[in-house]
Design a protein around this nucleic acid. Structure first.
Lengths: 94, 94
DNA sequence: TTGATATGCAAGCAGCGGCTTGCCTACCAT
DNA sequence: ATGGTAGGCAAGCCGCTGCTTGCATATCAA
């Protein structure tokens, strides 16, 4: 079980959430190519896979397996742990 | 300059923000004793000082020096970088 | 079945981060 | 000036983390 705060403490993982937020339900290879295209990321497939594992363990990404493909969906729910911890931050947003 | 996400990726630093959120304008020694009392933290003064340095570098803590004392104030402003990055999280909060 | 596609597991390495230790500077009271 | 208080600087250690590499598993097409 990974902390939401730790999961977000990595620019690559945040970029993955960006990409999933823009186009949900991508597969691992799709995410790899998207990251390479849009941000010049030159990471291995395994690196991205491990990042996705962290995000999934933190509940920020939910997966669905069909055949030999695994689709990843962005789940913003756990982000409430951040905004809910320091109520004054909510005030400053509204 | 430290990232907001990295600054939050540490339970001690989050506890410091909790304490400052509860009672603002504390000094380093006050924060040390508060953490020790309320959470059983047995960290050195330097450790807390370094944590405060990270929080200040991330803009989450603002300081004011008077005499030989330095007062720390919680600034929730940078938290908007988190809630503002993935708009769907805002929706799920309201 | 054979080959190609899509993903998973595990070991190993390098770098960073948190913590301690030791010493130093600045301010205040007596 | 002296002693005590509040904080800062820097080096060093250790554990964790991100990344690679190599191999293995599972699914689909021909």
């Amino acid at each position: 079980m990974v902390d939401v705060f730790r999961a977000l403490d990595d620019e690559t993982r945040r970029l993955i959430l960006d990409d999933l937020s823009a186009r949900d339900g991508q597969t691992l290879f799709e995410i790899c190519t998207t990251l390479a295209m849009r941000h010049g990321l030159t990471l291995t497939r395994q690196a991205i896979s491990q990042h996705l594992g962290v995000l999934e363990s933190a509940g920020l990404v939910v997966t669905e397996r069909r055949g030999r493909s695994k689709f990843h969906y962005f789940n913003p729910g756990p982000l409430a742990q951040i905004t809910g911890r320091w109520p004054s931050s909510k005030r400053s947003e509204q």
